[in-house]
């Protein structure tokens, strides 16, 4: 039964206990990150920006904010209401992975990540996979199937990408809401299995 909005006292309780969790959607340019966020989000995807400062060597220390190299990086994001008191935010990472270094804490506090792979261009997601490993972000691999994608067996791709056995590799269509939801389910199940495996007994 759905008790959403049911409050016998008539108080507005929504504000108080609400918590958030975040999941990152990573992968190379054009692999379908924004498409996936759009498919599963309860809201029309939004874009937030960050102004990153690249300290270029030999720059004089002038006064003000314009003395360093400023780069604007965009994050597409959406959200899913998990229940009345928990919101899941999905962030599509910026296309150029080199900015991930500059954006401190971009992956910090994330439950985990989905790394999207276009099977026609495996190499475009190499950097994303390496970054997840380097930053210790647990992830699953989701193969975004485009109409002209060859029919690759999942295990063949796993080998080509050098993904260990315990990390799920699933195929899906990023335009499909249920399929995108299932990828998130695969990620959470993977996190549960990892948690159980890591727990001291």
């Amino acid at each position: 039964m759905d008790f959403k909005g049911f409050d016998p006292t008539g108080r507005t309780t929504a504000a108080d206990g609400t918590r958030s969790v975040k999941v990152m959607i990573a992968g190379g340019f054009g692999t379908g990150k924004t498409t996936m966020v759009r498919s599963v989000s309860d809201i029309r995807p939004l874009t937030t920006e960050e102004t990153l400062t690249q300290a270029s060597a030999g720059v004089d220390h002038l006064i003000g904010v314009t003395d360093k190299q400023q780069t604007t990086v965009s994050l597409d994001f959406g959200k899913i209401g998990i229940n009345d008191e928990l919101v899941l935010y999905l962030f599509g990472t910026p296309g150029q992975e080199r900015f991930w270094f500059l954006w401190n804490g971009l992956f910090k506090g994330a439950l985990g990540a989905v790394v999207l792979v276009d099977t026609r261009r495996l190499a475009s997601s190499f950097r994303a996979i390496e970054e997840m490993e380097r930053q210790n972000v647990p992830f699953v691999i989701a193969l975004n199937v485009f109409p002209d994608s060859r029919d690759h067996p999942v295990e063949e791709i796993r080998d080509a990408l050098d993904i260990p056995e315990d990390i799920p590799v699933v195929a899906f269509d990023a335009r499909d809401r249920a399929a995108s939801r299932d990828v998130l389910v695969a990620l959470i199940r993977h996190l549960q299995e990892r948690a159980v495996a890591l727990e001291p007994r």
Partner: peptide, 16 residues
């Protein structure tokens, strides 16, 4: 690991 949190997220996703 926060297993209760993961379970909460999972059941929310499964209701979508």
């Amino acid at each position: 690991p926060d297993l209760a949190l993961l379970e909460e997220v999972l059941s929310g996703l499964q209701r979508l």
